[in-house]
Nucleic acid binder design. Structure first.
Lengths: 208, 208
DNA sequence: ACCTTAATGCGAATTTGTTGCTTCTAGCCG
DNA sequence: CGGCTAGAAGCAACAAATTCGCATTAAGGT
């Protein structure tokens, strides 16, 4: 069912996969996601519908595949000289991408046709890669770093939860606030006295 | 499209809605969610398929509706005498329900057929009700309480994120840990010295 | 009790999804 | 290098689903 373990990665199979993915991307832009149908994609891709049904099962799994492709980060997180700056920048960009209408659509699609949670796990793995890259640099600089899991709980999870469940204002300030609170915890762990600026505050509620 | 703003809430419409929902619940148990079809549900409910298509649009939106019904908490959170105890108990139960196979299925269904995010917002509202009930009691007792939004970020979001994106071990200890960290922050805000037991720790990673 | 109109029922027409079989070809072995 | 083998795609007939126009029913208001 899942198209990932391709027994024959090369040649025609690969061409068909790329052709179908391209057709989906084009048609989503032209007629919109809701109007997409498997026969339509098949025609555009120059294959027969049964090929798509056999390889992907249904439209949702195909869209899920395409969505995961587009959720893959294409660039490493920027190096701004400090853990805090890097995390701020990454969190802001992450929130921007995920909260934008296309981002939401991709997330939904990725979750949609994904019986085994494989694609969802892949999304999570992408975020982990980016976070780990930031943390590794911080370690190189000799900075104390939080665990990846803490950042998932404190930064990634709140963003994703609100994107999915709470249609409300999600802005860069919120992302920075999450990072602040995560790093604040770290400072306490490290024994440093918390500064006033780093104190948690929730003056702004991103939802209604 | 969305069935909520029923122009005619009473009489036949209500009977049809209940009949269809019941049919879905029965058939999911009998043949499984994957084998469900709209005509099948229609036959069981004693309505014509076109009625379902017109009111719900497609099977996913119908399943989303039914899922939200089942995600509605049927009982108020227990009163165990303290904010901490109440939150622990609530978080444990919440995690149990959401991480269980049927719970995961309901969450996925609720998100799945929900173009406007209305049903997802309803899920979030249910959690808010429960949390607010716990917090209101704590206020009555004179305890300092965190804001609802903080608990969403620190407790609800991490649980839901992991349920959706990180198939891994989610146990009661993790729920308590999240509550501990949320309340720990509160204690700092209130000026109380953090105890060792309340210090954040992430010895257990709920995922691989 | 009557009127208005949303909501349902019904069935034909259309579209989508499935299946068995054939054909093609990438990867492999001699 | 040339012929096997099996996975993958094409094809076509079939089965199932979704859509649509129109007739009918029944809530809710007057």
């Amino acid at each position: 069912m899942s198209p990932k373990p391709m027994a024959r990665p090369g040649g025609r199979s690969a061409r068909v996969q790329e052709s179908v993915h391209a057709a989906v991307r084009e048609l989503v832009g032209e007629v919109g996601r809701d109007a997409l149908t498997v026969p339509m994609v098949a025609t555009r891709a120059g294959v027969t519908p049964s090929t798509i049904y056999r390889r992907w099962g249904d439209l949702h799994e195909l869209l899920s595949d395409v969505a995961v492709e587009r959720l893959r980060p294409e660039t490493d997180p920027a190096d701004l000289g400090s853990l805090r700056a890097d995390l701020d920048a990454w969190a802001e960009q992450f929130l921007d991408e995920m909260a934008s209408p296309p981002g939401r659509a991709y997330i939904r699609d990725a979750l949609l046709g994904d019986p085994d949670g494989i694609n969802a796990g892949q999304c999570s793995a992408y975020a982990a890669e980016q976070i780990d890259a930031v943390l590794a640099r911080a370690v190189q600089r000799g900075e104390p770093v939080p665990e990846t899991e803490l950042l998932f709980d404190r930064v990634v999870a709140p963003i994703m939860y609100r994107v999915l469940f709470r249609p409300g204002r999600l802005d860069a300030a919120y992302a920075r606030e999450l990072v602040t609170n995560a790093v604040y915890t770290l400072q306490i762990d490290a024994g440093a006295p918390p500064t006033q600026a780093a104190a948690p505050r929730r003056s702004k509620k991103p939802d209604s």
